[in-house]
Design a protein around this nucleic acid. Sequence first.
DNA 1: CTGCTTTTCGACAACGTTGTCATGTTCCCG
DNA 2: CGGGAACATGACAACGTTGTCGAAAAGCAG
Lengths: 323, 323
Amino acid sequence: MKDVAVAAGVALKTVSRVVNDERGVSPETTERVLSAIQRLGYRRNESARVLRAGRTASIGLVIEDVADPFYSGISRAVEDVALGHGSLVLSGSSGEQPLRERELVLTFCSRRVDGLIIVPAGSDHDYLRPELDAGIPAVFADRPGGLDADTVTCDNAGGAHTGVTHLIRHGHRRVAFLGDSASIFTAAERLHGYRRALRDAGLPADETLISMGPPERAGAALARMLSGQAPPTAVFTGNGRITVAVLRTGHRLAMVGFDDFELADLLVPGVTVVAQDPVELGRTAAELLFRRVLGETGPAARVELPTRLIARGSGELRPPDLP
Amino acid sequence: MKDVAVAAGVALKTVSRVVNDERGVSPETTERVLSAIQRLGYRRNESARVLRAGRTASIGLVIEDVADPFYSGISRAVEDVALGHGSLVLSGSSGEQPLRERELVLTFCSRRVDGLIIVPAGSDHDYLRPELDAGIPAVFADRPGGLDADTVTCDNAGGAHTGVTHLIRHGHRRVAFLGDSASIFTAAERLHGYRRALRDAGLPADETLISMGPPERAGAALARMLSGQAPPTAVFTGNGRITVAVLRTGHRLAMVGFDDFELADLLVPGVTVVAQDPVELGRTAAELLFRRVLGETGPAARVELPTRLIARGSGELRPPDLP
DNA sequence: CTGCTTTTCGACAACGTTGTCATGTTCCCG
DNA sequence: CGGGAACATGACAACGTTGTCGAAAAGCAG
């Protein structure tokens, strides 16, 4: 900038004014400065600007894994909203490891992001409190973070309830539940929905039909159930990865899965799912965040997005004993 | 930092030394400073550090769309390599729009990223030259960028050749090619591979069996071919989105697709594909980049990754007239 | 104890930008 | 033509760090 000023024969400040479109610079001077900028290939140093202004025009996004379509949908939506606000997105995958999440968040903070969107991996987010107190707004997405911050979740319990009830309506009395590790908030919520659906239908809860654990183990868990004394006639899977794992076992049960996925309609039979909308989730979280960034105060918002049952065939199969 | 210095009763510089683990500070002083840092909840301002040091410890990544599994795979791999180098990733989706790509890249540059990984959207990348000359290393991924920079691509022509040859070996003489818009480098390369495969097999090239265009139009294009005079008995699809679009039409042709995708094995018949490895692509690009960031000079590297044919059934169907 | 090195620490400048205030110039109105 | 307003421009400080250099204190060999 100094070089530009010299080249244009003006003061530093005048260049700054031109660069920032501030008023109070004559057209000719502007012209001269612009040409000098062009000639020298000058580009403003954003770091210095940030140092001076305090605003970084960037937000941090911590998700579980960009390579997972659910999270990459969120990612894209957040990116689009950020772009609309002239902001960039720093993103990182926590891999469901609380420590890595924490490291990412703190790194983002020391880079003075204007705000954070976090899909919480652990349950303990006390490390965030000082940052929040320091005025960095944060939004929890997909799961609550345990702190008093804006939160956007899906109607996990309700969605599971709908899906399980759908199976029950089609005559199933022994519906298995295959969920992710119980320590994950969404998995626990969906299990609640499952239990409530059974209760509402007056069906007994059979703990041997419930298995919580990582997707890789879901297939084996189902196999165990099927070879048990009173095997299930239908299965509700707690997330997309488990749905796929179960499909790979090649069973022929009735099935409803949480999370929609590409090609669900092309399998035979089509896979009935309870769909959540990652794009909407990301968009909502980002919009809440930017509202805070722009100065809105007020109590933490809790938004719960609806889910939608999409019937495609697998959920409408009747149990073998009912023709 | 000033506050910490006052609280610990030392000079600014001493705090800086402690924060950076520099030698030359007595254990007691270190202790005092650390406790002051703890007490005041101090965290170093990265912007100021960047301003002073010149290194931002962050790289920029421009892809077409994070929500596309191919690119999110790249994204994740880049992120992991960056993490290993203590770097963050600024990422953005260009949506295949050269203007948006340019804007993203320039924004990244003005934030002084240490390097860039770009999946080029347009063909004209002259705007990048000043940045490269200014010393910002860049790597082109998936497609060449037209400049003399490190480039990582897949063996597009070879992969298509393999896939089409596979169909020909199974008795097909009329193989359609459905590719993305011809202006996209990878699409054009794959078309070349297709043509070469026909030529190598001594088959005539029938232009009515070739259609280039966005995935949304692929289904209609295939329908037109099938209702034509001499319909194809097999189809080669030029990328994952087109493969899915064609699957949705419900045809019963033999088929090989470029790009592997989840559940390809669960469809009936399983979808034979030519797989490329997005993770490997991202990893390679990131490693090349960090080599440059760490000071390696020398001529631009061109890496071409191999593809792999995965036979699952759809590509092994014989033409109807050959039992 | 002298003269040397080593250790520990601080003062200061600089990174590139922008906000504040001051200065000089032009213009308009009475 | 005087007096102020509006405009154009510049000098300077400050943002929070870290590199440079110098000073004081401590240790050590002779």
